[in-house]
Simulated assay, not measured.
Amino acid sequence: MLTKKQLDLLDFINKRVQRDGVPPSFDEMKEALDLRSKSGIHRLITALEERGFIRRLAHRARAIEIVKLPDSMAGKSGGFTPKVIDGDRPDGPRPAGAMPVGHVSAQEVPVMGRIAAGVPIAAISEVSHNVAVPTSMMRDGGEHYALEVKGDSMIEAGINNGDVVVIRESQTAENGDIVVALIEDQEATLKRFFRRGNAIALEAANPAYETRVFPEDQVKVQGRLVGLIRTY
């Protein structure tokens, strides 16, 4: 049996994972539940973990996976499909097109190289290999590709060094979206997107990194995050 605050937090985390493919930061949880400090969030997270509703990933700051939902919440959302996938690269080639990964229908998408979640690195456009992605991550249609994350600037958004992010191709973004941004046609980075008048702010999810602001004509959105795959 969950308390109202525990249920509210679980619902908020679930909605953000379904929308963004990654869990919210502790600051976002605190604001959503109108709590005064992060210690209250820590207590709620611990309670949810003890009751088997979530799992915190060892040695990965603020990385949370939802294990299950209460029946009432699963009914409201039309069923639960996790957006963070644990797995590994296949030992051999797989046939193209849809395929089962466990009990989840999946499709292969190209991994286009590495993307910086830190100081931007050179954009890479060559396909290195393919990765199987659950079709639930691509339910909105459009073209998709994957990138391997390098760096820790998005760690409070649950995106860690070595993760593979799944990107839906798009040239537009809403404020707060996590995007692949191409800077001055030379460097690519994974950051939260915010429009500030005639400028674009690219915001990290790690206080160690400063928000970078560019004239809007120097930033091109290359796609929006729809999910991630974590390999152990």
Score class of each variant (00 low, 15 high):
Lys15Arg: 15
Arg16Ile: 11
Val17Arg: 15
Gln18Phe: 08
Gln18Gly: 03
Arg19Ile: 08
Arg19Glu: 15
Gly21Asp: 06
Pro24Met: 09
Pro24Tyr: 08
Ser25Ala: 05
Phe26Gly: 04
Asp27His: 04
Asp27Tyr: 05
Glu28Phe: 00
Glu28Pro: 05
Lys30Met: 14
Glu31Asp: 11
Leu35Pro: 00
Arg36Gln: 09
Arg36Leu: 09
Ser37Ile: 05
Ser39Thr: 11
Gly40Ala: 13
Ile41Thr: 00
His42Ser: 09
Thr46Asn: 13
Leu48Tyr: 01
Glu49Gln: 12
Glu50Arg: 12
Glu50Gly: 06
Phe53Gln: 06
Phe53Leu: 12
Ile54Leu: 06
Ile54Gly: 02
Arg55Leu: 12
Arg55Ala: 14
Leu57Asn: 08
Ala58Phe: 07
Ala63Lys: 05
Ala63Ile: 00
Ile64Lys: 06
Glu65Ser: 10
Ile66Ser: 05
Ile66Ala: 04
Ile66Pro: 02
Val67Asp: 06
Lys68Met: 00
Leu69Val: 02
Leu69Pro: 02
Pro70Thr: 07
Pro70Tyr: 03
Ser72Leu: 13
Ser72Gln: 14
Ala74His: 09
Ala74Val: 07
Gly75Asn: 13
Gly75Glu: 13
Lys76Met: 11
Lys76Pro: 05
Ser77Pro: 02
Gly78Pro: 04
Gly79Thr: 07
Thr81Glu: 15
